[in-house]
Simulated assay, not measured.
Amino acid sequence: MENTQLEPYQPLLDGVFSTMQQPQPTTKALDVAEAVWRAATDPHAPMRIPAGKDAVALANEVG
């Protein structure tokens, strides 16, 4: 028996799974260390510093 209930959602699911298979940027330990160093030594640093390409992308997406 075939499940046809998901059929209307198939394009959405295909897009989600396709995106998940693409390499995504991830935060590395050095990214965090650099953000902490900036927070500790730069008197003009913002209260929140994104650490890593993924955090920068998310901050730009939200903000």
Rank of each mutant, 00 (worst) to 15 (best):
D42Y: 06
M47T: 09
P25E: 11
P11H: 08
P8T: 04
G52Y: 03
Q24T: 10
L12S: 01
V62A: 00
M47C: 13
M47K: 13
N3W: 14
R38I: 14
P8E: 08
A33T: 15
A35W: 04
A35K: 02
Q10P: 05
F17Y: 03
L58N: 03
K28R: 09
Q24N: 14
S18K: 01
D31R: 10
P25S: 12
D14H: 14
S18N: 08
R38E: 08
P11C: 06
V16S: 02
T27K: 14
V16G: 01
G63S: 00
E61S: 01
E61T: 00
K53V: 07
K53F: 10
Q5N: 15
M47N: 14
P46E: 07
D31L: 09
M1E: 03
T27Q: 14
W37I: 12
W37Y: 03
G52V: 03
T4N: 07
T26I: 12
A55P: 12
A40E: 13
L58C: 02
E61K: 00
N60S: 02
A57Y: 02
A59R: 15
F17V: 04
Q5E: 10
Q24K: 12
Q22R: 04
Q21G: 03
E7V: 13
A45L: 06
Q10K: 07
L12V: 10
K53W: 10
G52C: 01
K28L: 02
L58A: 05
A51G: 06
T27V: 10
A35S: 05
D54K: 07
G15M: 01
E61A: 05
K53Q: 14
Q22P: 00
P8I: 02
Q10D: 09
P11M: 00
A51H: 07
A29N: 08
T4Q: 11
Q21P: 02
K28D: 01
V16H: 12
L13C: 06
P50A: 10
W37R: 04
A57T: 03
P46L: 07
M1K: 00
T41K: 15
D42W: 11
A51M: 04
D54N: 08
Q5P: 13
D54F: 06
L30W: 08
P50C: 05
G52Q: 02
A29E: 07
D14R: 13
M20F: 08
S18F: 00
D14W: 14
S18C: 06
D14G: 12
P43N: 03
E61Y: 02
P50K: 05
P25C: 09
P11I: 01
E34S: 05
